[in-house]
């Protein structure tokens, strides 16, 4: 099963939930943890994996053959992303704008353009005890993360429980990360920000037709508005995780919640049971 952990709002506890869930479930079955928050990957700071394999990820960008180019300007004209500019005698490429659509290198009238690799980041793989670990690290200054997210997701295997840590937000990085999963856990917090962004995340998942359930993190017992919302939208509340100073301090030091409080293992087992129940029904 492929399971995504997402939130809309940042800092609600996605990594706390995904890491603790991975550690708990790895006692029972084969588990892979895929950190798709390639802009700010955090899973490795909590799981401390031994990284054994590293692979550079590239996207294609145009390279101009100055000998063949006659500065006709057609490439710049057809580029929807403004990644090319043609000056007299000189054609400039802005790789950070390029979406690798292939328009310029397929349709240059002088065949003066060829695609070349532009490295945008790395995918690293390893093990954190029983958990198979994969994450992506986007190079600083690179604008577009989806190709790297795809490369991380390509490391998923069918015979494992795959847990995907999704970046915050509701635009392309989040969408690319959740696409194709069987279920999505939405982590929220009982604040107006948490609820507002939960609603946005729910709309994205509905549009993608991905079933979802909610985990209320830092629950202070005053979560009625979140529960009312979930009731109205017919989304199950899968688990509540209490507000706990010890867990917060553990997090600060890079210790997963489930290792700070061993008894919380039960909380995450229950969460997985409920997910399986919803998926199978």
């Amino acid at each position: 099963m492929k399971l995504a952990v997402a939130s809309g709002k940042g800092g609600t506890g996605k990594t706390t939930v995904s890491v603790s869930l991975a550690i708990t479930m790895a006692q029972r079955k084969r588990v892979a943890f895929l950190d798709c928050d390639v802009e700010e990957p955090n899973g490795h700071l909590m799981l401390n994996p031994v990284l054994q394999h590293k692979e550079m990820v590239a996207v294609l960008v145009p390279e101009i053959d100055e000998q063949k180019c006659d500065s006709c300007g057609y490439c710049a004209e057809i580029c929807a992303f403004h990644a090319l500019a043609v000056l007299p005698g000189n054609t400039l490429v802005f790789p950070e704008m390029c979406h690798a659509c292939g328009g310029c290198w397929n349709f240059c009238p002088k065949q003066a353009i060829t695609p070349v690799d532009n490295y945008i980041g790395v995918v690293e793989e390893g093990r954190a005890e029983k958990v198979r670990f994969v994450h992506g690290r986007l190079n600083v200054g690179v604008a577009m993360s989806p190709p790297l997210i795809r490369a991380v997701k390509a490391k998923a295997k069918n015979d494992e429980l795959t847990i995907i840590d999704v970046p915050p937000g509701t635009s392309c990085p989040a969408v690319k990360s959740v696409e194709g999963v069987d279920f999505c856990i939405l982590v929220t917090e009982p604040t107006p920000f948490g609820l507002h962004d939960l609603d946005l995340a729910v709309q994205v998942l509905h549009q993608l037709k991905i079933p979802c359930g909610v985990v209320i993190n830092r629950s202070d017992g005053l979560d009625l508005t979140v529960e009312e919302y979930c009731g109205r939208c017919k989304i199950p509340v899968l688990q509540k995780i209490p507000l706990d100073r010890e867990v917060a301090e553990g997090y600060a030091a890079g210790i997963p919640a489930v290792l700070v409080k061993k008894e919380w293992g039960e909380l995450f087992s229950e969460l997985m049971d409920k997910v399986e129940e919803v998926v199978s029904s």
């Binding site: 955090n42 600083v140 600060a252 030091a253």
Partner: peptide, 21 residues
């Protein structure tokens, strides 16, 4: 930022970004 391992890690990356530009 906040004084957690993740907060420090993410701050360093975003500071590099600001420097880059």
């Amino acid at each position: 930022t906040e004084p957690s391992r993740t907060g420090i890690h993410d701050m360093e990356r975003v500071l590099s970004l600001v420097e880059h530009f």
